[in-house]
């Protein structure tokens, strides 16, 4: 891969994530069919599509929470293979935000944010806490640092989850339906945080049904159906002039 060559020459790759002909099966069912996708550094890509279309599976392959069975995935110049070293290196560079937050309930908000920096990046306690407060401020929740996750609302928990991922100073952020499990009145605060992150120049790959968010921040919208990418366009084109009939059918259902 040319990305690998670039990395070895010490020039920072301008490609953050690339998938080449990636396929995956769950038993006999093919969830991903020859997916090829390139996300450049600083780019914001929104992935849309009906449930079961493989969107989540695709982004979960990027940090090896799911394993692809053929094709290549290169993250920040490192090709994902079944080796602990590679997987841990990629995971250090890739932050992920989940639908159900996945905060650690036995740790405070602050401890949630310092756990990985101290154990994975071997930061000192002081440095880790300074980093944690920097990002907790950013998501406007630093005043809750000593509470436990269960004492926070869903929207607050999701903002903590975003801060927790940012504390590893990732190069890419993956969002797997970050607002789908939230009460409607809490969706806004999480989307605002994501918009702010986009404005800061973070490379983002978001699986979401929030088409307003896609319109506002995406450089590209990708539409997936039945394990394939069937359309890929800038938001203006994507929303005003969808090419594929399955895209049109989907948009007519999600945009009222």
């Amino acid at each position: 891969m040319d990305q690998v060559a670039q990395a070895s020459n010490n020039t920072p790759p301008t490609v953050a994530v690339s998938l080449h002909q990636v396929s995956k099966w769950f038993g006999a069912f093919q969830v991903l069919q020859n997916i090829s996708l390139t996300v450049r550094t600083g780019e914001r890509v929104v992935v849309a599509g009906p449930s079961g279309s493989g969107k989540s599976t695709m982004i979960r392959c990027i940090n090896w929470l799911e394993q692809h069975q053929s094709g290549q995935i290169v993250v920040d110049g490192i090709e994902l293979t079944n080796s602990h070293k590679t997987i841990e290196a990629v995971r250090k560079d890739v932050g992920m935000v989940f639908q159900h937050f996945n905060l650690f309930p036995h740790l405070t908000i602050l401890e949630n944010c310092t756990l990985a920096p101290t154990w994975v990046k071997k930061l000192s306690k002081n440095d880790a806490e300074a980093t944690a407060f920097e990002f907790l401020e950013k998501v406007r929740i630093a005043d809750q640092a000593n509470k436990f996750p269960s004492q926070l609302s869903g929207g607050q928990q999701q903002r903590v989850a975003i801060a927790r991922a940012l504390c590893m100073r990732p190069k890419v952020m993956l969002f797997d339906e970050p607002t789908s499990a939230l009460d409607p009145e809490m969706v806004r605060e999480v989307l605002d945080t994501m918009v702010q992150l986009a404005q800061d120049g973070m490379t983002m790959l978001c699986v979401t049904h929030e088409m307003g968010f896609a319109r506002q921040v995406a450089d590209r919208v990708i539409f997936m159906d039945r394990g394939e990418i069937i359309e890929e366009n800038p938001p203006l084109e994507f929303f005003s002039n969808p090419h594929h009939k399955r895209t049109r059918a989907f948009l007519s259902q999600v945009i009222h």
């Binding site: 090896w64 989940f98 996945n102 154990w119 590893m168």
Partner: peptide, 15 residues
Amino acid sequence: LSRGQSEGAYALGLS
């Protein structure tokens, strides 16, 4: 325990 606990930890790079 929910499966999300392992995924959350792995995604942060924990062994």
